[in-house]
Amino acid sequence: MLKALRSHGVLGEAADSAALLVTELAGNAVEHAGGRPAGKFTVVLGRRDEWLRIEVRDGGRPLTLRQRSSAPEVTATAGRGLFLVQALSGSWGVRSTPGGKAVWCVLGVC
């Protein structure tokens, strides 16, 4: 992943944040997508000026994702992934694709 980020000119702390975001979104795709075959996903990176768009596509049903208003409880065993995405990215969301859905986020990388 870091090689792909470097090829988009994303380095240092921004690369660390981007790698974490990809890991969280990909982990959700594997765990929740129900794609065919189960857990299959695609990561798409796109850079425009000082912004990196990260998109993880899977075969799961499109969902309406809501942003958390507060951090998960300390004892919670799940629910931190999208909280991290919300905290680290400038914006994020979900869209339908012909084969399922795509969860995306935009990260400042200037």
Rank of each mutant, 00 (worst) to 15 (best):
W104V: 09
A87W: 01
L5K: 10
W92Q: 04
A19K: 07
G90W: 03
L45V: 10
A87Y: 01
L84I: 14
L65A: 05
W104I: 09
H32D: 09
R53I: 09
G90V: 12
L107R: 05
T64K: 15
L11Q: 12
L52M: 07
R6D: 08
H8L: 14
L82H: 05
A18H: 01
S96R: 15
G108V: 10
V10Q: 12
A76E: 10
G90S: 12
C110T: 07
E13W: 02
K40Q: 12
P98L: 09
E73Q: 11
G9L: 08
V94W: 01
A14N: 01
S69T: 13
L63T: 13
R61Y: 03
H32T: 07
R47S: 08
A78E: 15
V30E: 07
V85Q: 01
D58Y: 03
A29Y: 03
V85K: 01
S89T: 12
V85L: 05
V56H: 04
G39I: 09
G93I: 14
G39F: 01
R66Y: 08
S91Q: 13
V10H: 02
V74Y: 00
V10S: 09
G12H: 13
G9D: 04
V30C: 09
L65K: 02
H8W: 02
A78R: 15
V43F: 00
G100M: 09
A71G: 03
P62R: 14
L21N: 04
G59E: 05
A29I: 09
G99I: 04
T97E: 08
G39M: 05
R57W: 06
A15S: 13
Q86C: 08
T64E: 15
R6M: 06
F41V: 06
P72R: 08
L20P: 00
S96W: 03
L45E: 03
A26M: 07
V30W: 02
A15L: 10
S69C: 02
S89A: 15
A4Q: 14
G12E: 13
P72Q: 08
G93F: 07
T97H: 08
G108W: 03
V94A: 15
G46S: 15
A4V: 11
R36C: 04
R61L: 15
A71H: 05
K101C: 11
G27E: 11
M1I: 07
V30Q: 11
P72Y: 01
